[in-house]
Amino acid sequence: MSLLTALRETVAGFKSLLTGMRITAREAAKPSITVQYPHDTLKMADRFRGHVKLVLDPVTGKSRCTSCNLCVRACPSDCLTVEGIKREGEKKKSVSEYTLDFTTCSLCGSCVEACPSDAIEYSKDYNVVSLDRAEFARMDLLKKLEAEAKVWAEKNPELAAAAAAAAAAQAAAATAKAPAAATTASAPGAGAAPVATTPAPTPAVAPVPAAGVTETRTT
């Protein structure tokens, strides 16, 4: 290697360094692109796959889930538990327990695809936090739905009233058919129906508060 080529290479190398510095200077002049997370948040995409949640039927104010257990069967990591009960006067079963073990869920979405009645969808929650592991190990989706139903009922009082009326009619029909069973059966949504006027009792996992039945009857 002659002295001249060595010198030329050195100069070329030095020039490449200056080019690099020019580029970083140019980038430094551009505005910052960080989203300051706790202060600003991003809007999740429409198809964002968060954890699953039960869909609130905008007509009935209840879940559409029929506890057919197809989602449980589709789940590769066995993280769903679904229990249903057959209520009097209803053609299909309705859900009485829907829990997700979020610690093993891999957010694959197989359950949503498997669902025949579009009863579950992806939530847009991406920052679920808790100090308690149990809250993730046993995420009660039905409870979340009931809380949602309460808000829904406050927002749409007439829809809620209609739904309650429908439920009452159904229940009445049921009592007409089998009066003995009436005291044990009611839909969970029905309990939340009179919320427009009086605050509903805190939704519990146990779906059939006896008071709800009597109240429904009086309306």
Binding site: E27, A28, S32, T34, Q36
Partner: peptide, 11 residues
């Protein structure tokens, strides 16, 4: 570093 990398740095 934040400026060059288009982020705000400690703030």
């Amino acid at each position: 570093a934040g400026r060059i990398q288009r982020r705000p740095g400690p703030n």
